[in-house]
Write a protein that binds this DNA or RNA. Sequence first.
DNA 1: CGAGTTGTCAACCATCAGGTTGTGAACGAT
DNA 2: ATCGTTCACAACCTGATGGTTGACAACTCG
Lengths: 119, 119
Amino acid sequence: MADQLSRVFQALADPTRRDLVARLAASGDATVGELAAPYAVSVQAVSKHLKVLEEAGLVSRSRDAQRRPVHLEAEVLDLMTAWIERYRRQAEERFSRLDAVLEEMAATESPARAEGEAS
Amino acid sequence: MADQLSRVFQALADPTRRDLVARLAASGDATVGELAAPYAVSVQAVSKHLKVLEEAGLVSRSRDAQRRPVHLEAEVLDLMTAWIERYRRQAEERFSRLDAVLEEMAATESPARAEGEAS
DNA sequence: CGAGTTGTCAACCATCAGGTTGTGAACGAT
DNA sequence: ATCGTTCACAACCTGATGGTTGACAACTCG
């Protein structure tokens, strides 16, 4: 799981981490303690989750005395959107090309056999 | 990892699986053997990957004699896009609200202390 | 029927992920 | 200087993941 894209997808595959992102998006920066409060797990577990998000580039942590305010880096989300949209669009295009082919086949009088089509 | 969204993110966290999706988007339906050919792993491993994609709803498999053609279900990608865009937008909005607050603060003559701001 | 093709299932192994507890570092407050 | 708070790191456990090999199911073709 070396590449950035894999890390981002992996990071968001966990409901707790998605919720962390959601709350940071809604309410802005927060400390680890604040973020951990609503969950039934230890602060350490949340700290681990934040580390995963940080390594994915989704979050950054600065230092303010003994606090470690967590900040959402929303731009990374664009990376995923770009990937997803690219292939969704490609699949769509291929689909409409297929439609065109089918129409063309229907329009042809003699039953033309398409490449690799079952008899 | 019960919910659909988690399964979809999880499924796409693997480069091989992303590549499978990419190839299905580009070239349309394919058999397991065709899909497995380019990779240095066994057919069984690819079959497992396809199962993960299938359980995430990203792919469906029908039956044609001993072939099991694999088909990309691109609509599920919208689920992710919706999630991502929602929070990206939320973060953006919060950011512009913050800008507004900062401007207002700058406009105020007496140095108003914002909630929780360092002295 | 018997042989070949395509793909899945099952068992196994190594590694990773998410959780715990314990310890201690960094810092503000007294 | 000491105490309390906030947090990260290390060690450990358990279950999931990604890979392997071996067997076999489903089907086609001779």
